[in-house]
């Protein structure tokens, strides 16, 4: 992978404890409503459905009774060295802000979908249709996220608006907005997961829980060998789960 990892003083990161995830989908529900993703009638067509957060089912591929499963929630990995950014012809997506969240500027996006193809984690969604809410349901749209027309690409933003809100709240409370307390800014999925499987914070801040969590011997990142240096970490005590995090050859 060409390019270099971008470093920022703050590095927002998510740590997902796979061993606690039941696969319930509450994180997806949280995400969709937080970020004004329309309710999709034909959502069983996964090639067309939009889900910034998507829960994958992993299996160890063994037959009964040695079969095992795990669930892997997948937001945008906010790569330190994002392949999506370098391919965008109009800089509609960039990694240029403290915190390291990869931006997505809808009015700038020309819908060429290079980034969709470039993202190794399939987190990017193209709007094939204009979004439609059942009559009246648009009254429940969140003011924090704009509604996207058809023809642009969208993806998880680590609920970036919540960071802005947390900084504002810190300023009002006379605290340093650049040094938020642990938990002052978390994404919607992290907040609502009933299992407490998701953690969020500044990986570089020793006062934040995730700072330690990412150092766990059980922590891994997806497709680490690509050198994308993602800001999303996974934790599992099961070796087969950790192995699935990368494309290993049978002999490895």
């Amino acid at each position: 992978m060409s390019g270099q990892k971008k470093e920022f003083p703050i590095t927002w990161g998510m740590v997902i404890d796979i061993d606690k995830c039941t696969g319930c989908g509450a994180c997806m529900a949280s995400c969709q409503t937080e970020n004004n993703v329309e309710p999709q009638r034909e959502a069983s067509n996964k090639l067309r459905a939009t889900s910034w957060m998507l829960v994958y089912e992993l299996t160890n591929d063994k037959a009964f009774p040695n079969h095992d499963i795990a669930y892997l929630p997948r937001p945008c990995q906010q790569c330190g060295n994002p392949p999506c950014v370098s391919v965008c012809p109009v800089i509609a997506t960039d990694k240029n802000e403290n915190g390291g969240i990869v931006s997505q500027v809808y009015p700038r996006c020309i819908g060429c979908r290079y980034c969709v193809a470039a993202c190794p984690y399939h987190v990017r969604y193209f709007g094939w249709y204009d979004p439609i809410w059942p009559e009246g349901m648009d009254k429940t749209l969140s003011p924090m996220t704009s509604v996207r027309p058809r023809g642009v690409v969208e993806k998880c933003t680590f609920c970036h608006h919540r960071w802005t809100q947390a900084k504002d709240a810190a300023r009002v409370a006379g605290k340093d907005p650049e040094n938020l307390d642990d938990g002052a800014y978390v994404t919607s999925c992290v907040q609502n997961c009933p299992s407490g499987a998701l953690a969020f914070g500044d990986i570089k801040n020793p006062k934040h829980k995730v700072h330690e969590l990412v150092k766990s011997p059980y922590a891994f990142r997806l497709l680490e060998r690509l050198g994308t240096e993602t800001q999303v970490y996974y934790i599992s005590r099961r070796e087969w789960v950790r192995k699935l995090g990368d494309n290993y050859l049978k002999s490895e």
């Binding site: 319930c24 989908g25 509450a26 997806m28 529900a29 949280s30 409503t33 309710p39 809410w133 059942p134 009559e135 009246g136 349901m137 009254k139 429940t140 907040q191 609502n192 997961c193 009933p194 299992s195 407490g196």
Partner: peptide, 18 residues
């Protein structure tokens, strides 16, 4: 304790369920 199920999350938008 801070968690909600996908169903509890629906309390608001189901106000406008078709």
């Amino acid at each position: 304790c801070g968690g909600v199920s996908a169903l509890a999350r629906s309390e608001v938008y189901m106000l406008y369920s078709p």
